[in-house]
Nucleic acid binder design. Structure first.
Length: 476
RNA sequence: GGCCCCGUCGUCUAGUGGUCCAGGACGUCAGGUUCUCAUCCUGAAGAUCAGGGGUUCGACUCCCCUCGGGGUCACCA
């Protein structure tokens, strides 16, 4: 396949959630798969809806995910600028060309008149078509009125790289606005001009634009430019509704996932699986694998519901697959302040023990608290334990004293501890459910922990005995 | 309402005429792994392939209709 030049062209109106980013991901994946380029362009032509700083926020999100761009905002490129608000001249120039060709004209109506037309159409249960009111003798365009496309309505059939063969009748085509009265172009016009100038080979966008495609097809013809490959990706749906995932329903900022300690690779894997698969039974993919295997042809046509539980599982799977050294680096900013006295080596050992339990990095503190601080003795852990509650405190105390004496001889390596604990089972004649539970609770004071021998080994002799003695003092 | 798109387990999906009384994964439930939590392993429940007509020896797969869902009909993208 020839190198594809794709682009992601968000509007800076807020943060990005999984739905928006997935469209970017597919465009990026195609560019990388074909050895082409990926462009990040900002469609900031709606000054009313624009949110200060969101362009930077979006760029930050993509960067965190590793969806790097070859040209675009913040880095420039051969077709700079990549902000539409800074490209007004070229829209004006191409608008002028259309006027000269007789394919664009000034819209003389007031907002009130337009509303009347629309209301009439709605009352007649008909779709509103501006071209039914096309002025016979429009004034010259002076930039204070909207500039409209003079469409040439006709039937279209076209191929969509995802949806397959599509078609629509002439009634889908209308005289849409090219340039607004504030001088900014509409999306409908600007993206076509920019994609042409920036030589994009593929336009990948979400499904809500599919109804406008006939208009774009008509405009490509009027402009006499070659049209790129069109690809319509299905929408990402909310968890339980049938509607598009939206911020209103609590769709999270992609950077919230970054803060909570989701891995970019996991998020990418998850988003890709929302509407794409390689036809095998593989579920977990690395980014390089995704790049190698991605194709638009295998993108799903129907929408996919966003299921955060699946994302959680996938993140855990990626964490488990991480080399321990990499996990250590990622974990740095998730350690609570009371761990700063501990050595890197100690933290690494702790991480090694909780790696397979971590679903996301932000739960590191609650999973590892007892490795860094003595927790208060909690008798509930013993009294509510279904094995230990059968024994009196005096019996438990005797058992723990015996265990302590035996453990005194240990060098506290995991293997030696395992051996001694096993001998202890024989000596006491107790089940692991009793003896191990007792020692585990004594040394961690936590409802759950990694395996006993490993935990003791990492805690070390001093801490282990201090905590055992603490419990012994309370057991009367 | 017009136009357009979509429709396989709760969810993500495999399936391009026979190997499918439909396979995998998440989730759920049960059991196993020397204690807990998790991992890992095993097993179970879970889809009349939206419904109805065709075509065909044979249809989840092709055609038609119906139903359901969604998108769009902005000086928003």
């Amino acid at each position: 396949m020839k190198p594809a030049r794709t682009r992601f062209a968000p509007s800076p109106t807020g943060y990005m959630h999984v739905g928006g980013v997935r469209t970017a991901l597919f465009a990026w994946l195609l560019a990388r798969h074909t050895g082409g380029q990926f462009i990040l362009r900002l469609e900031d032509t709606d000054k009313v809806r624009e949110v200060e700083g969101s362009g930077e926020h979006i760029a930050k999100s993509l960067r965190w995910l590793g969806l790097n761009w070859d040209e675009g905002i913040e880095i420039g490129g051969p077709h700079a600028p990549y902000k539409q608000s800074e490209r007004l001249d070229s829209y004006k120039e191409w608008g002028q060309k259309l006027i000269e060709k007789g394919r664009a004209y000034a819209d003389p109506y007031s907002k009130e008149q337009l509303d009347e037309f629309r209301a009439a159409a709605q009352a007649a249960k008909k779709p509103f078509l501006y071209r039914n009111h096309r002025p016979t003798d429009p004034p010259a365009w002076d930039g204070t009125m909207p500039l409209r496309f003079k469409s040439d309505p006709k039937d279209y059939q076209w191929h969509d790289a995802v949806m397959g063969d599509l078609s629509a009748g002439a009634e889908a085509i209308d005289d849409f606005i090219l340039i607004k009265s504030d001088g900014y172009p509409t999306y409908n016009f600007a993206h076509i001009i920019d994609d042409m100038i920036m030589q994009c080979t593929h336009v990948i966008r979400s499904q809500e634009f599919i109804a406008s495609v006939p208009n774009y097809l008509n405009l490509y013809e009027a402009l006499e430019i070659e049209r790129p490959v069109l690809a319509t990706v299905p929408m990402v749906l909310g968890p339980d509704g049938r509607k598009k995932l939206s911020k209103r329903d609590g769709a999270k900022d992609i950077l919230d996932y970054a803060r909570e300690g989701y891995l970019p690779e996991a998020l990418i894997n998850f988003m890709a699986s929302l509407g794409w698969n390689d036809g095998t039974e593989q579920e977990v993919f690395s980014v390089p694998e995704l790049i190698e295997k991605f194709s638009l042809e295998r993108v799903q046509r129907g929408g996919a519901h966003f299921d955060e539980r699946r994302l959680l599982w996938m993140n855990g799977a990626h964490i488990r697959a991480l080399p321990l050294d990499d996990l250590c680096k990622l974990a740095v900013e998730y350690w609570p302040s009371n761990t700063s006295d501990s050595t890197e080596e100690y933290k690494k050992q702790v991480l090694g023990l909780v790696q397979e339990r971590l679903k996301y990095l932000a739960e590191l503190p609650e999973l590892t608290s007892f490795f860094f601080a003595d927790l208060p003795v909690n008798m509930r852990l013993i009294d509510d334990n279904k094995q230990l509650k059968k024994f009196s405190h005096a019996e438990l105390k005797a058992m723990l004293e015996q265990a302590r004496a035996s453990l005194e001889q240990s060098d506290f390596s995991a293997t030696d501890l395992t051996q001694r604990l096993n001998t202890l089972l024989e000596q006491t004649g107790q089940k692991p459910g009793v003896l191990f539970s007792l020692i585990r609770i004594a040394t961690t004071q936590a409802p759950s922990s990694p395996g006993l021998a490993e935990t003791l080994s990492v805690l070390g002799r001093e801490t282990s005995f201090r905590r055992i003695d603490q419990l012994l003092a309370v057991l009367q």
